[in-house]
């Protein structure tokens, strides 16, 4: 464990709970893409199948349980409890256009052709594009609530911190995973446009609104 990965994991945890609290407190999921949340739930479920078979540490197991539970809870709040506030008219990204190609790629490009490894690879590839429905929804509505932009900033920062973690681990531990690094770069690059808007607008107390 290193500081980049620890802060990255905490940033990820913060993002998930900021979103969960926003929906719970405001009793509304306006402006939030349910499709992205479904993809994130799929990412965690396919990645953490080794939860009971491969014990790493209390921290590792605890975080896996929290990530799965909080994301499933978010999907539940969006599609069941506060379904009436779900903005399906703007959450129209065709996620099958993400899941199918990512699934095919996981079969073709992986470290080891075994079910658990292919599912892990699928999860890594899917996570790199899972935010697209959310970014697409913001581009359609033309703006995002401030709390939603904080959610996105924390979520985008987590994988950017993981990139620093992989640089650290490469030089100090000789650890390198090309699949995770490439997917992590794609994932972080997708946030660049948002990071620019967040830093130039939200940081100065303005609302995040995309140029019309």
């Amino acid at each position: 464990m290193n500081i980049f990965r620890l802060v990255g994991d905490l940033s990820h945890l913060l993002a998930i709970f900021v979103l969960l609290l926003k929906i719970w407190k405001s009793r509304s999921c306006a402006g939030v893409s349910g499709k992205s949340q479904i993809l994130f739930a799929l990412v965690f479920i396919t990645r953490y199948l080794d939860l009971f078979t491969n014990f790493i540490s209390v921290y590792n197991s605890l975080m896996k349980v929290i990530f799965i539970a909080s994301t499933v809870a978010t999907v539940y709040l969006m599609y069941i409890k506060f379904k009436a506030t779900y903005d399906s008219n703007h959450d129209t990204f065709r996620i099958e256009f993400l899941v199918v190609p990512v699934g095919g790629l996981a079969f073709l490009v992986n470290h080891d052709f075994t079910p658990l490894e292919i599912l892990w690879t699928f999860s890594i590839y899917l996570e790199s594009v899972a935010i697209l429905p959310q970014l697409f929804m913001i581009s359609k509505t033309g703006e995002a609530e401030t709390i939603t932009s904080h959610y996105l900033f924390a979520l985008g920062s987590y994988r950017a911190l993981y990139l620093l973690n992989w640089i650290y681990r490469y030089y100090f531990e000789g650890y390198f995973d090309l699949i995770a690094v490439v997917a992590g770069c794609v994932q972080t690059i997708l946030y660049c446009d948002f990071f620019y808007l967040y830093i130039t607008k939200v940081m100065w107390g303005k609302k995040l609104s995309l140029p019309a």
């Binding site: 990820h12 790493i56 590792n60 896996k64 993981y162 000789g174 390198f176 995973d177 090309l178």
Partner: peptide, 10 residues
């Protein structure tokens, strides 16, 4: 990856 196959990251 160059390290053991152990997946120790979240």
């Amino acid at each position: 990856q160059m390290s053991s196959g152990q997946k120790d990251e979240l």
